[in-house]
């Protein structure tokens, strides 16, 4: 997994609540057996018309946001299907940070496994950043994970919370499986005890 330490980039505003994973990456793109290449189909049905032409009004099609690396969105971002294709598509497009008032649980976890930082902020902070983001390419925002601070285009700072373990993994680009396998002895011991207690499992 690619590390995430500090990022300065354009923030794109998506002031819509309940953006679900079917919107982020529609089902027909889930047929891939790879993790890469989904960026061109990110938000496919919102981004392209039925003939495959770009819809100019969609935020990521606007010149200012074509290289956005940060998304500012409404409540409950990433609800619905567990598809990890959603963070894969965001990452492949170049999005490394999503900021919203709340996220759906599975999507939130999936982001951290892919070097994407989802940040939960109070409504007033999200409103401020949404306003900043709507200023276009001038709206460059810096996200500093080490210090847990977002710096807006006017220099204003917003601090954010992040789970200590998830932060550690993101900062160092750590592979979860490798970390867990360091506990192989503990797992084996548990498995033995669990199997004795519940032989039917």
């Amino acid at each position: 997994m690619e590390k995430f330490t500090k990022l300065t980039g354009v923030a794109a505003p998506m002031p819509l609540i309940n953006i679900d994973t079917d919107m982020i990456i529609p089902k027909l793109f889930l047929k891939t057996i790879k993790r890469s290449g989904l960026g061109k189909n990110l938000f496919d049905e919102m981004r392209y018309d039925a003939e495959g032409n770009e819809i100019p009004d969609f935020v990521l099609n606007k010149p200012a946001y074509r290289n956005a690396q940060i998304l500012i969105a409404g409540d409950n971002f990433g609800c619905g299907s567990s598809r990890e294709h959603a963070p894969w598509a965001l990452l492949d497009f170049g999005i490394r940070v999503v900021i919203a008032t709340s996220f759906a649980d599975i999507f939130f976890n999936n982001c951290f496994k892919n070097g994407i930082l989802p940040i939960v902020l109070p409504q007033e902070d999200v409103d401020k950043l949404m306003d900043d983001a709507s200023r276009g390419a001038n709206a460059v925002v810096t996200v500093d994970l080490e210090n847990q601070v977002i710096t807006g285009p006017d220099g204003g700072e917003i601090s954010f919370e992040v789970d200590a373990f998830k932060k550690h993994c993101l900062l160092n680009g750590l592979d979860d499986i490798g970390l867990t396998l360091q506990k192989a002895d503990k797992i084996a011991a548990f498995e033995k005890e669990h199997g004795a207690k519940m032989p039917w499992v």
Binding site: N109, N110, D176, I177, T180, I187, E191
Partner: peptide, 21 residues
């Protein structure tokens, strides 16, 4: 019982465990 992403599928396949809060 709950849903997981593909990275977690790999984690469970490899270790039969899941990191959770």
């Amino acid at each position: 019982a709950h849903g997981i992403g593909t990275s977690e599928v790999e984690h469970v396949l490899a270790t039969q465990t899941l990191i959770q809060a």
